[in-house]
């Protein structure tokens, strides 16, 4: 049996969707179909991929309009009678075909205040309990596929790239903020540069996360609450003013 892939072909100047027919086999994923097209019909069809096992987060695309990892999207999820649309991520500029320019994300990462550990024990190592790191290990599962960044309407529709870090980097900040060894504070970063207030917690990031990280509930909202602690809670603000204390270090 065959399926039809309707793939975006083009670059920054524009392009069009083009149909390709690929034979189906058991267990086939969309990335297999793309590879088939490359090998047989369009050797210059651009797409990113690496591990093909949902572990590296390279093959992000929009399949029938939904942000997905192509290597983890089975062809048998779709109606064989209908063409399957495969388009590049829309929140980022297209370079060519399914490849887009995600370099902005790497720039955002550079601006996040880095990990700053407390001094180690006398033997040069650190002690941490599993219960202290369980929460952070969820965030460390992130494979940087940037599907959450793609689907986030603040970046996708409102184009706030200059003032908003996006869900991926809130997850990263959460992994640092809640790290039991870290002594730095990133609430000022979140409030002033990260733009966490622009997030209106509509949860699309959580819906598309291939690692099932509960981005909104476990990372963004707890960070919003920490920002409230330091910037909005009137009682705390009054207390700090009375005691002439600055924000938590």
């Amino acid at each position: 049996m065959d399926a039809v892939l309707r793939i975006f072909r083009g670059d920054a100047q524009g392009g069009q969707f083009q149909d390709y027919t690929v034979p189906l086999h058991e267990g086939m994923v969309v990335l297999d179909a793309i590879h088939h097209v490359q090998a047989h019909a369009a050797s210059d069809l651009a797409c990113r991929w690496n591990c093909k096992a949902g572990r590296c987060g390279s093959c992000s695309a929009e399949v029938d309009g939904k942000p997905k990892l192509m290597c983890m999207t089975r062809m048998d999820e779709f109606q064989p009678s209908e063409p399957i649309t495969v388009a590049p991520l829309k929140a980022f500029p297209v370079i060519k075909d399914l490849v887009c320019d995600v370099s902005w994300n790497y720039e955002v990462n550079k601006r996040i205040p880095p990990f700053h550990p407390k001094p180690p024990e006398p033997d040069g190592t650190w002690r941490m309990q599993q219960e202290d790191i369980d929460r952070v290990q969820e965030f460390r599962k992130c494979i940087e596929c940037f599907l959450c960044q793609d689907v986030c309407h603040v970046l996708r529709d409102h184009e706030k790239k200059d003032s908003f870090a996006g869900p991926r980097f809130f997850v990263r900040v959460a992994s640092l903020e809640m790290h039991p060894l870290d002594v730095a504070s990133r609430t000022a970063y979140l409030e002033e540069q990260g733009g966490i207030g622009l997030c209106n917690i509509t949860k699309c990031c959580t819906e598309v996360c291939p690692e099932s990280i509960r981005i909104t509930d476990n990372a963004i909202i707890p960070l919003k609450e920490r920002v409230v602690d330091d910037f909005y809670d009137p009682v705390r603000l009054a207390w700090r003013w009375l005691t002439r204390r600055d924000r938590a270090p």
Binding site: P120, T125, W126, R127, Q130, R140, H179, L181
Partner: peptide
């Protein structure tokens, strides 16, 4: 490996808090 912990890595823990 211990150096990586100082750079932020979080390995699974033993009951007494070591790697």
């Amino acid at each position: 490996v211990v150096e990586l912990e100082g750079w932020g890595a979080l390995f699974d823990r033993t009951p007494d808090g070591r790697i």
